Amino acid sequence: MEVGLLFSGGKDSSLTALLLDEFFDVTLVSAHFEVTGAWKHARKTATALGYDFEEVLLDREIARTAVEQMVEDGFPRNGIQQVHRHTLETVAAMEFDAIADGTRRDDRVPSVSRAQAQSLEDRHGIDYLAPLTGIGRNAVDKMVEKTLEIESGPSEEIPKGDYEVDLRALMAELYDDETVSQVFPAHTQTRVVARR
């Protein structure tokens, strides 16, 4: 059975790939808006992990709407949620038997409710998998420490292949860098570089 896993090159989506690997043929899918080319970082990680990789171009109008929502809200949560739903819909329409993501139990965003998951499955005839939704951050970190080699640092210095990089760049283009720093809180980012 083939699963398309939403993939950023970070520890959560990489760990999810390892967990699914025993049961599925895993293809790592990096979704982007063709703003920065950041998806190439995800491809590099996919190669290091030994998985097939696909990049998917998302509707740029979704990005613009999400950026406007984030600026209006003053925080990224609702915009990121919009983009994640759009990404799941896009990948569900591809030729996979199942789709998956690396959302954890403790994630506030993105999240997929039970009703949303069932709707995806029913409308697209696929299975939706999120193996980390029952696992907290501390346990995820312990699992990652045993299986993956990572680098970490400020999000501006550790580029990953996720759509957040494109959203930040588009926000800077439509507004300015100050708006980006006001909307997106500074945080530590991780990127997987190899298996242990």
Score class of each variant (00 low, 15 high):
residue 76 P to W: 08
residue 175 Y to W: 09
residue 41 H to C: 09
residue 12 D to G: 04
residue 193 V to T: 09
residue 33 F to C: 04
residue 89 E to V: 13
residue 72 E to Q: 14
residue 2 E to Y: 11
residue 56 V to Q: 00
residue 106 D to Y: 13
residue 148 L to F: 13
residue 10 G to A: 03
residue 6 L to V: 08
residue 29 V to Y: 00
residue 7 F to L: 12
residue 33 F to Q: 03
residue 68 E to K: 05
residue 3 V to K: 02
residue 91 V to H: 06
residue 29 V to M: 08
residue 135 I to C: 05
residue 139 A to N: 12
residue 63 A to N: 01
residue 171 M to I: 04
residue 179 T to K: 08
residue 33 F to Y: 15
residue 115 A to R: 14
residue 103 T to R: 06
residue 195 R to T: 03
residue 186 A to M: 13
residue 180 V to D: 06
residue 36 T to S: 11
residue 127 D to M: 13
residue 149 E to P: 03
residue 50 G to R: 03
residue 24 F to A: 02
residue 186 A to L: 13
residue 193 V to H: 03
residue 114 R to N: 09
residue 86 H to C: 12
residue 43 R to D: 10
residue 135 I to A: 06
residue 83 V to P: 04
residue 98 A to N: 11
residue 35 V to Q: 10
residue 161 G to C: 11
residue 6 L to H: 04
residue 165 V to H: 08
residue 168 R to S: 04
residue 128 Y to S: 05
residue 127 D to A: 14
residue 79 G to K: 02
residue 28 L to Q: 07
residue 93 A to M: 09
residue 23 F to H: 14
residue 48 A to F: 05
residue 20 L to N: 07
residue 14 S to P: 00
residue 178 E to K: 15
residue 49 L to I: 02
residue 1 M to E: 13
residue 30 S to P: 01
residue 111 S to R: 05
residue 44 K to W: 12
residue 7 F to G: 10
residue 151 E to F: 00
residue 32 H to G: 08
residue 53 F to N: 09
residue 51 Y to A: 11
residue 45 T to L: 00
residue 71 V to Y: 12
residue 134 G to I: 10
residue 33 F to S: 07
residue 177 D to W: 09
residue 48 A to T: 01
residue 103 T to C: 14
residue 170 L to R: 05
residue 46 A to V: 07
residue 108 R to I: 10
residue 122 D to C: 06
residue 125 G to K: 12
residue 81 Q to K: 14
residue 148 L to N: 02
residue 16 T to W: 00
residue 83 V to G: 04
residue 70 M to S: 14
residue 26 V to P: 01
residue 107 D to T: 13
residue 96 F to Q: 07
residue 28 L to T: 06
residue 120 L to R: 04
residue 14 S to R: 01
residue 192 V to Y: 03
residue 104 R to A: 13
residue 195 R to V: 01
residue 187 H to M: 08
residue 185 P to L: 05
residue 38 A to T: 03
residue 125 G to Y: 10
residue 195 R to F: 02
residue 170 L to N: 02
residue 45 T to K: 02
residue 122 D to K: 15
residue 187 H to C: 06
residue 196 R to P: 04
residue 142 K to N: 10
residue 98 A to F: 12
residue 85 R to P: 08
residue 97 D to V: 15
residue 105 R to E: 10
residue 132 L to A: 11
residue 118 Q to L: 14
residue 60 R to F: 03
residue 145 E to W: 02
residue 71 V to R: 12
residue 49 L to D: 07
residue 136 G to K: 14
residue 93 A to P: 11
residue 25 D to T: 15
residue 71 V to K: 11
residue 155 S to I: 00
residue 111 S to K: 06
residue 35 V to G: 08
residue 110 P to H: 05
residue 25 D to N: 15
residue 43 R to H: 12
residue 100 A to G: 05
residue 136 G to E: 15
residue 47 T to C: 02
residue 81 Q to E: 14
residue 92 A to T: 04
residue 43 R to K: 15
residue 45 T to A: 01
residue 15 L to M: 13
residue 40 K to M: 12
residue 25 D to C: 09
residue 142 K to T: 10
residue 174 L to K: 15
residue 146 K to M: 10
residue 34 E to M: 10
residue 24 F to C: 02
residue 84 H to D: 10
residue 79 G to R: 01
residue 160 K to A: 10
residue 121 E to L: 04
residue 105 R to S: 06
residue 9 G to P: 00
residue 91 V to P: 00
residue 41 H to V: 11
residue 85 R to L: 15
residue 4 G to L: 11
residue 6 L to G: 04
residue 38 A to S: 15
residue 59 D to I: 03
residue 9 G to D: 02
residue 45 T to N: 01
residue 106 D to R: 11
residue 37 G to K: 07
